[in-house]
Amino acid sequence: MLARLAANRLLEIRQLFRQPLSSRSFSTALNYHLDSPDNNPDLQWEFSDVNKEKAKEILSHYPSNYKQSAVIPLLDLAQQQHGGWLPVSAMNAVAKVIEVAPIRVYEVATFYSMFNRSKVGKYHLLVCGTTPCMIRGSREIEDALLKHLGVKRNEVTKDGLFSVGEMECMGCCVNAPMITVADYSNGSEGYTYNYYEDVTPKRVVEIVETLRRGEKLPPGTQNPQRIRCGPEGGNTTLLSEPKPPPCRDLDAC
């Protein structure tokens, strides 16, 4: 009796701490396809002539009986060509190139969260949501972005310029929090994928506005006090030349 009461209480406390269900995050969108006017298997999709050459080059990296190894680079190429997302017909086209059943390509495309299977903006903003960034305030950054752009996560702004998504750790924990801007505004030729680190809710809004104006912005840390990944305001330790590790005298042998 007492144990049950205690267990119930514990559950209640847990419920309190739990995030509301709507914000439960999955790294990927739906795992199945829903037909829509701009995304259905009947649409024609082909690599552009320039990208056909690129695809040929990519395929040449792999033995001719292992064409399927090229699935990820080809999907990436297709995504760049198609403004940052992969319609079903693009995946079918990739399947045809690498001579596998379409489902094998769908499997790969749904596995990686970097492949967007629904429409994204020309600038796709990805907020890192992994622990170090989250501790350093990535939730606020995402909220600020969403509020500023007036969209929900994975939704595209009305002008088609921006969309916000979440991603897992990109290895910039030292400059957390960070966002990534995938720039699809110039097709696969002008495609860039830049990290903006040490961002604040205020700074991300400025970044968005700069991008909206079409200006270039130097990637990397947004903290003027910091040089690359160095400590803010210069080193406080390791000030002298680092000593080499003690090593036996090789010449003596």
Binding site: T28, A101, I103, Y106, E107, T110, Y112
Partner: peptide
């Protein structure tokens, strides 16, 4: 080849 494992 109709069925597959989707997502992660």
């Amino acid at each position: 080849q109709d069925l597959g494992m989707l997502g992660r």
